[in-house]
Design a protein around this nucleic acid. Structure first.
Length: 399
RNA sequence: GGGCAGGUGGCAGAGCGGUCAAUUGCAUCUCGCUGUAGACGAGACGCCUUUCAGGCUACGGGGGUUCGAAUCCCUCCCUGCCCA
């Protein structure tokens, strides 16, 4: 992997760049669609390419459980397996430490707890009587014990194991194994967790560097041919911890920097927290903001020097019937399931150039969603992914 | 004409003397979704008052029994199946 900065903004830390891998390039800033289980739900790779995507993010934990990293390795690696010949990121499974652990136990996704109170009322009230479920994880110094959400079998993920799986999968850009903490975690826990995440960062890097030189490429003269490993900044909503993390991870021999974890309780807080430590990060390394975002969040992230973003939001809300719509410099959602759209001959957005908007009315889409037809989620996903790619194009051009 | 089974909120379908404005599913309406246990989840859904709550009208029509009826009895109307 090689990262080059092509242009820097004069007004902010935003930069335009290019990530080069043996599977091709990613022009940054870029939105990276999430394809957890080696598929962006409902999309063929041809559709993704025609929209303009250069890269995807898949999930280590999910693919480890099913079909198994060894199966994928035997099939010639993730690229060949899923017929995607462009760059792939894999998340380390660190997010599942949270989502299947604390998040599940407390009935709150990263989402529900991420920005509570922003839209009227703290936690909306409904979170109060959410049934607590038993978490599926147990964290120890060595790693994380997972109870598979698929069959209940016990699995153990360590930094070394995560790197091994990611090596077998063969993604171009991989992440160190971390613990994503919750915004509900207190300072004491977050500090303790951060220290452990840093020990895991060292172990991830050591496993990576000591790994198979052909795939990891360490010692290989061709830097382009090897995987790249990103270290991850945690530290919750605590300034000293975030700064400590930024310094710690920056000093290490990672190829890129991922920013993860809980970023406060409101968007405003998130931008503030990011502002604390992003200036401490090395300029020449690519930076990935994990799990963010919404179109407006991406703008803020770019201004803070972020290069890539992955987020399930555009694809998930599409499946759930919401289409992204531009409104001024920001965006709004169109809930296609609302009955009033059954009488609407317009496309989602008249000005949109996506194949959905060129061919189908809101009425038809509304009907598809009401009838639970699979084409509804597919067409809405095409639109939302198109929207995100246009959004990113505009951002790139403006830098 | 005779025999049986039924008529419950937009639909389907529970309830079969009080805890029933009535379980549940669907439909409808509204909201949410940010490194995907998610084509998912939450709330509303007779009428009226501002939530808590209270009031009103309701389980085919009418009448009755009872402190109390969607639930029991009588009667009328209607529907389905079977026999003439």
């Amino acid at each position: 992997m090689r990262f080059r900065i092509l242009k820097k903004s004069k007004n902010s830390r935003a930069r335009r760049g290019i990530i080069e891998t043996k599977h091709g390039v990613i022009e940054t800033p870029a939105f990276i669609p999430v394809g957890t289980q080696a598929t962006v739900k409902g999309m063929t790779v041809d559709q993704l390419k025609s929209i303009g995507y250069q890269s995807l993010l898949c999930n280590t934990y999910h693919l480890y459980l099913r079909p198994g990293d060894k199966v994928i390795k035997k099939m010639g690696g993730l690229h060949k397996f899923m017929n995607w010949d462009r760059p792939i990121f894999t998340d380390s499974g660190g997010f599942q430490v949270f989502s299947l652990g604390y998040g599940l136990e407390h009935g709150v996704g990263k989402v529900a707890s991420m920005f509570p109170g922003e839209k009227g009322g703290v936690l909306h009230g409904e979170t109060e009587h959410v049934i607590k479920k038993e978490k599926l994880t147990r964290i120890t110094e060595n790693g994380v014990e997972f109870r598979s959400h698929l069959d209940g079998s016990l699995r153990f993920l360590t930094p070394e194991k995560s790197i091994e799986i990611q090596r077998n999968l063969g993604a171009d850009l991989i992440f160190a194994f971390d613990e994503c903490t919750s915004p509900l975690h207190d300072y004491v826990y977050t500090k303790k967790s951060l220290a452990r995440t840093h020990r895991w960062a060292k172990r991830s890097l050591a496993a990576f560097q000591g790994g198979d030189p052909v795939t990891t490429g360490r010692g290989s003269p061709n830097e382009m041919g090897r995987q790249a490993l990103y270290g991850i900044i945690q530290g919750g909503a605590f300034r000293d911890l975030r700064e400590e993390a930024a310094k710690f991870i920056s000093k290490m021999d990672f190829d890129g920097i991922g920013i993860g974890g809980a970023l406060g309780n409101t968007k405003k807080e998130m931008y503030k927290i990011l502002g604390w430590f992003t200036p401490l990060l090395p300029e020449n390394k690519p930076k990935h903001l994990l799990g963010i975002g919404a179109p407006d969040d991406i703008i803020q992230g770019v201004k803070l020097g972020m290069d890539t973003f992955d987020c399930v939001m555009p694809t998930r809300i599409a499946r759930n019937g919401s289409a992204l719509l531009a409104r001024g410099g920001s965006y709004e959602l169109l809930n296609l399931k609302l009955g009033r759209y059954l009488k609407d001959k317009n496309p989602i957005d008249k000005k949109c150039g996506c194949s959905t908007c060129k061919s189908y009315s809101r009425a038809y889409l509304s009907h598809l969603f009401k009838a639970h037809e699979i084409l509804g989620p597919i067409l809405a996903t095409i639109h939302n992914l198109w929207f995100m790619e246009q959004w990113m194009k505009k951002i790139r051009q403006s830098i």
